[in-house]
Nucleic acid binder design. Structure first.
Length: 482
RNA sequence: GGCCCCGUCGUCCAGCGGCCUAGGACGCCGGCCUUUCAAGCCGGUAACGCGGGUUCGAAUCCCGUCGGGGCUACCA
């Protein structure tokens, strides 16, 4: 059987990391099985759907490296893969279910339903719809609807009854139909509900495996019932553990950054994001946490997905991002970092500046966890008038050996023959000997003078990149400021 | 309230009846290295929610209990 899986986000907001994780698991399994991965846009909620969000979904998935074989922008045998283009189809299915008696018209008003629900809940009964309109004569009901009386279409759920299915991650799950009410398929304005649209699409697109968040577990009997009523086969379901925020609740906006976009712009590498997210509810192997996309595809299995919810841990993600940054080819690192530097600078870098950046690149690369940290770590190179970090200045410039150190450094650096890190180091170490200073004490003033901070890339290389003129200039300025 | 799901270090995972005096990773703490900061290396901290069974033997199976979560819409 050819595996066909889909991810069906609603473009009502930026791509959520929970959805991105679900997309990732679907993609991994599709790739693992040599199946087909499909991107469908569930935009039945016309009021809240925005093109900007749809765009963000596409950009986000591509950024993560999740390519789709069918769907929006990729095409395929099923049209546009957008629910808003299939309204007629949902209507058609609903009419047929109505005709076969699998569904019925309901004229209860929202107010009545609300009232009855409250009462049921107060009495400890299942709060769902009580099925009252099911008793109506279909012909009579049809006439009322034709006359314009507002009506919804509900599925006639078998009662008594029970729906049982085997969930790939949770094994067998059953729902007594006591708790599955005759839910709405089509609203009184003629629009399909999520349950109808999503299930019809899954059937029409011949989806074989539905892997989605556990929040949809209790809706699954509804989807199975619709598929069966359509005379279609039921896909295999896999309900993925939910992603929690640090407070142990479903990850949502109030937890801060829940959009993938925030991570894309926050200096994270897609490889790291991919790796980290794949660990939320799954493990590559007991002792291994860092692995490639290919390795993940090779080993991924829905049946091995964990049942318990996972807390999204930003600290571990950041650590992992550092691992991936350090693993980057130096050229690649600079290429990826440059946009962040230019963004911070508000202008493009010149050729010379790019070279300086490249020279310092490998030294900075192993010191950052996020690409967004690069500008802060390199900006001193481009500064025309250096600003000193106040704490750094107080800590090392206001001690009594500093003036002498700077004077000595100035003298020695002026005569360094070949302005290279090795020569600079030789000269400065000789200076330390002469002054009887430890490297720790003697080099810090030079660092602060040259970079403005006690924290910087290694000093000798840094001075080499700055060049003799700029270095001497900065030492003089600092000396004058003492 | 009803239904459903879940319960191993603070967090993410490993464990699927004996290999467990419970393993890895993040974090945290300490040390080494060191021109700062990182990185790296070494070491440490820390968990089977609880109570009953089943079994020669239970983190692993069963029941209960407690706890957490999800759903409960003419949202998705």
């Amino acid at each position: 059987m050819n595996v066909r899986m889909r991810i069906a986000p609603s473009p009502t907001g930026y791509l959520h990391v929970g959805n991105a994780r679900a997309a990732l698991f679907n993609w991994l399994y599709a790739r693992h099985t040599g199946g087909t991965f499909i991107l469908r846009i569930d935009d039945t909620d016309l009021a809240r759907s925005e093109p900007e969000y749809e765009d963000d979904v596409l950009v986000g998935l591509r950024w993560l490296g999740l390519d789709w074989d069918e769907g929006v922008e990729a095409g395929g045998p099923h049209g546009t893969y957008r629910q808003s283009d299939r309204l007629d189809r949902y209507r058609e299915v609903a009419e047929r279910l109505l005709a076969t008696g699998a569904a019925y018209l309901c004229f209860c008003t929202p107010e009545e339903l609300d009232e009855r629900r409250k009462k049921a809940q107060a009495q400890g009964r299942p709060p769902g719809y009580d099925g009252r309109c099911r008793l109506l004569d279909p012909v009579e009901a049809g006439r009322r609807a034709a006359e314009g009386e507002p009506a919804v279409i509900r599925l006639a759920v078998a009662r008594p009854g029970m729906t049982t299915f085997v969930d790939v991650v949770r094994d067998e799950v059953s729902f007594d139909h006591e708790a599955v009410d005759d839910f709405v398929l089509v609203r009184s304005d003629g629009s399909p509900t999520y349950h109808l649209a999503s299930t019809v699409d899954d059937v029409d697109y011949e989806i074989t495996h539905v892997a989605r968040g556990e929040d949809l577990l209790s809706s699954t009997p509804k989807h199975i019932l619709i598929a069966r009523a359509m005379g279609a086969s039921v896909p295999t379901y896999a309900h993925l553990p939910l992603l929690f925020g640090p407070d142990g609740r479903k990850l949502s906006k109030r937890h801060g950054d829940v959009s993938l976009k925030a991570y894309r712009e926050g200096g994270y590498l897609p490889e790291a994001m991919f790796n980290y997210m794949s660990l939320l509810g799954w493990s590559f192997e007991a002792e291994t946490t860092v692995f490639t996309k290919e390795q993940a595809i090779e080993r991924f299995d829905l049946a091995a997905v964990s049942k318990n919810a996972a807390v999204f841990d930003p600290e571990k993600l950041e650590w992992m991002n550092g691992v991936y940054i350090r693993g980057l080819d130096p050229i690649e690192f600079i290429d990826r970092a440059i946009p962040f530097v230019e963004d911070e600078l508000g202008r493009e870098l010149s050729g010379v500046e790019r070279e300086q950046l490249s020279a310092l690149g490998p030294l900075v690369q192993e010191r950052v966890k996020l690409l967004t940290e690069v500008p802060g770590m390199m900006s001193f190179v481009f500064a025309t008038a250096l600003t000193y970090d106040e704490r750094s200045w107080r800590k090392v410039m206001e001690i009594d050996t500093t003036p002498g150190t700077l004077d000595a450094a100035l003298d020695r650096l002026a005569i360094v023959g070949d302005w290279k890190a090795a020569a600079i180091e030789r000269e400065l170490r000789a200076m330390l000997d002469e002054l009887g200073l430890s490297a720790r004490k003697g080099l810090q003033p030079i660092r602060v003078a040259a970079t403005g901070s006690t924290v910087s890339p290694p000093l000798f290389e840094t001075l080499e990149v700055l060049g003799r003129e700029v270095t001497l200039d900065r030492l003089r300025s600092a000396r004058a400021r003492l």
